[in-house]
């Protein structure tokens, strides 16, 4: 059989038309699934936990939030800045807000130790960096860690632009003064960070730092709930986020 150009073109046209019909059917069903998937995503995305830190109210010498957090989560204290494990800590203003836009800030603000913790970014770089999936983002916006899965590669520490992650260079157990039996400790060779007290949220409680603060510096709540206290605070006050230029969309906001 001779195959001339005319016949070949006719056949190809038939094949392409057939493929078009089939793909039409497929895409119809596929969009059906996709719609269901988006619907699911929307219902799941009812919660995005966030925090507002009102630094105007924060007292310089007070570390009650830090103590409460460290007690709740068995955070070790190695008494050595190289081994330090940080969940919530105080840092210098210029380290927390290194962007050049923060110029001519009042000395009172500039010299104050600023409260910092994991920002639970909407777009977390640490999650992308983690090769084992030990760090992941929950449907409620919390960037959570599965300590069982962490292999201690520390990619997440390199990826986090806020220094919110710490590595256990030594066995943390001996460095914990009072062990809280309700929460596990970590092992040597595991990374850890703030988890927004997801274990307390599940019981309907506020994070322990929020609860411990006597000055009501910290406001915690659902950023997706328009009627929540946190949204009211955000509406009433000008707030800033850490390194907004990176596009990580932190869930922690500051009133300075």
């Amino acid at each position: 059989m001779t195959e001339n150009r005319r016949k070949f073109l006719k056949k190809s046209a038939g094949v392409i038309a057939g493929a078009g019909v089939v793909s039409g059917f497929i895409s119809k069903y596929a969009t059906g699934f996709a719609d269901a998937a988006t619907e699911k995503a929307v219902t799941k995305k009812k919660i995005r936990w966030g925090m507002v830190i009102d630094m105007r109210k924060c007292v310089s010498g007070c570390e009650k939030c830090i103590d409460a957090c460290h007690l709740t989560h068995n955070v070790p204290d190695f008494d050595n800045p190289k081994d330090e494990i940080k969940w919530i800590w105080k840092s210098d203003y210029h380290k927390v807000f290194p962007s050049k836009s923060q110029q001519f800030v009042a000395a009172e603000t500039r010299e104050k130790p600023f409260l910092t913790l994991c920002n639970h970014c909407e777009n977390p770089p640490c999650v992308k960096a983690c090769p084992t999936g030990a760090t992941f983002k929950q449907s409620d916006g919390i960037v959570e860690m599965d300590f069982h899965r962490c292999i201690g590669c520390r990619f997440c520490m390199a990826a986090c632009p806020y220094g919110s992650r710490s590595f256990n260079w030594r066995n943390p157990r001996p460095a914990i003064k009072n062990i809280t039996p309700d929460y596990p400790t970590r092992e040597h060779g595991v990374v850890e960070k703030c988890n927004f007290c997801s274990e307390r949220l599940a019981k309907g409680q506020q994070p322990s730092c929020v609860e411990a603060c006597p000055e009501k510096v910290l406001t915690f709540g659902n950023l997706y709930d328009k009627n929540s206290e946190i949204r009211q605070v955000l509406k009433d006050n000008p707030t800033i986020q850490r390194k907004p230029e990176l596009g990580t969309n932190p869930s922690v906001f500051y009133i300075t």
Partner: peptide, 8 residues
Amino acid sequence: LNNLLVRN
């Protein structure tokens, strides 16, 4: 229903 998260 009152206290827990949607996931629960």
